[in-house]
């Protein structure tokens, strides 16, 4: 890694730590919300909003901005935390999450929140919206890119596969689907006779790389909690801009990533931290990170 890139990765890690702190502390103070999914996607969201996307927080509707759709809309607090850190609205506004009259609804609302390009929440719909935007952009010869983050649990929805088979037909090389493969869903599947608490693997039995190639997509597989790998994947993605195919980034992540007691456990699909847990997270994310 060049020193420039090292500095950039360090800066993005610092933003990701802050975002994670806002996710845990906001959900805890709102007493409702998801934790594990937003945390698995945090490094992707930070890398998009602080590095990859051509956007202007001062002009959220700028015509040729890159578009981003959080198809796994229940990870809204992850998106809101990153949008706030990026300057779309004050970080203090995160405290209104899920509250009456708030612009920060339980699931993303494009008509309320600055920087939210698509309303989502009912699972499986985001890639279809991304296809519509990408088709329209091609028809109008507009030079921007559309990214969609899709969950692995979400990918059990049939509409995802309607969309996956459609995008290559329209040669949408201006569209990238990032699969956040955190390996857990709210309840999930029992593996054999194991009595381990975490039931697992929404897509565990599927060779997703082969599937996506089979449907006619470019495929890039990475560790989706490693910002260096994410930035490299975005470089590769940009190089595929004229490939005539949409690109799938298969981001292998850890649910609840970045906080010791939430990482890798389905118990933290949603939850509220105790004071002690908040102190632990704060030490890991804010105090420890500043050393």
């Amino acid at each position: 890694m060049t020193s420039d890139k090292e500095a950039k990765v360090a800066d993005l890690r610092s933003q990701a730590n802050k975002a994670r702190w806002h996710i845990l502390s906001t959900v805890t103070s709102s007493k409702a919300g998801h934790i594990g999914g937003p945390l698995s996607a945090t490094d992707l969201l930070v890398s998009l909003y602080f590095s990859e996307l051509n956007i202007d927080p001062a002009d959220p509707h700028k015509a040729d901005r890159d578009r981003f759709i959080l198809s796994k809309g229940h990870s809204a607090i992850g998106l809101y935390s990153v949008l706030a850190l990026r300057g779309y609205f004050p970080v203090e506004e995160l405290a209104t999450f899920d509250h009456a009259e708030s612009r920060l609804q339980g699931h993303p609302d494009m008509r309320l929140t600055p920087g939210v390009d698509a309303s989502t929440g009912s699972l499986g719909m985001g890639l279809s919206i991304g296809i519509g935007i990408s088709i329209a952009a091609k028809k109008q010869a507009r030079d921007f890119h559309t990214f969609v983050i899709i969950g692995d649990g979400e990918s059990q929805e049939g509409q995802v596969w309607e969309a996956v088979q459609m995008a290559p037909r329209y040669k949408l090389d201006n569209l990238t689907a990032i699969f956040d493969l955190n390996g857990l869903q709210q309840y999930g599947w029992q593996e054999g006779e194991s009595d381990r608490f975490d039931r697992s693997e929404p897509m565990g039995h599927i060779d997703l790389e082969a599937v996506m190639r089979g449907f006619g997509w470019n495929v890039i597989s990475i560790n989706g909690n490693d910002i260096d790998e994410i930035l490299t994947a975005f470089d590769q993605n940009r190089a595929l801009r004229d490939s005539g195919k949409p690109t799938a980034i298969l981001a292998h992540t850890t649910k609840g990533a970045g906080i010791s007691f939430t990482a890798g456990t389905f118990k933290w699909h949603n939850g509220i931290a105790t004071d002690e847990q908040l102190a632990t997270a704060r030490a890991e994310l804010i105090e420890g990170a500043s050393k």
């Binding site: 390009d117 719909m125 279809s128 296809i131 519509g132 935007i133 088709i135 509409q159 309607e162």
Partner: peptide
């Protein structure tokens, strides 16, 4: 289902 989503995306 995909068609409805594509249509909505195009409206933006």
């Amino acid at each position: 289902a995909n068609m409805v989503g594509v249509a909505m995306g195009m409206t933006t």
